Amino acid sequence: MKKYIASAICVLFLSCDDGDLEIETLDFDSITSVQSCGEVSSTASNVLFKINGDEALILELPNGAIANEVTLEDIAVNVNESGSVIYRIFSGDVSNSYFCDDVPPVEPIVAEEISAEDGIIYITTTATDSVTFEHTIRLSGISLITGNDSRITDLRINEFGTITTSL
Rank of each mutant, 00 (worst) to 15 (best):
L26Q: 03
E159S: 06
T164N: 09
S143E: 15
E113S: 13
E81R: 15
I109A: 12
N78V: 08
E69S: 10
E22P: 03
V47E: 03
S41V: 05
D101L: 15
S36L: 06
S95I: 04
R156C: 12
D74P: 06
E134N: 12
F49C: 05
D17K: 13
L21W: 03
F99Q: 02
A56M: 06
L26G: 04
L21M: 12
T124V: 15
Y122W: 12
E112G: 07
S143H: 10
G53E: 09
I58P: 00
G141D: 09
A8T: 02
L139V: 06
N158P: 01
I23F: 05
Y122N: 11
F49W: 05
E73Y: 09
D74V: 09
T125F: 05
F160H: 00
Q35F: 05
N68V: 04
T162I: 14
A111F: 08
E112Y: 06
I51P: 00
E69G: 05
G119L: 12
I66G: 00
I31P: 03
D20W: 10
A65C: 05
S140A: 13
D18I: 15
I89Y: 03
I137G: 01
S36Y: 01
T162V: 15
E73S: 11
F90I: 12
V47C: 11
D17M: 14
P62V: 13
E107L: 13
S42L: 06
F90L: 13
T165P: 02
I163G: 01
V47H: 02
T136E: 14
E107P: 03
R88F: 05
A76H: 06
I137D: 00
L12H: 02
G38E: 08
D29W: 08
K3D: 07
S95V: 04
L167G: 07
L14D: 00
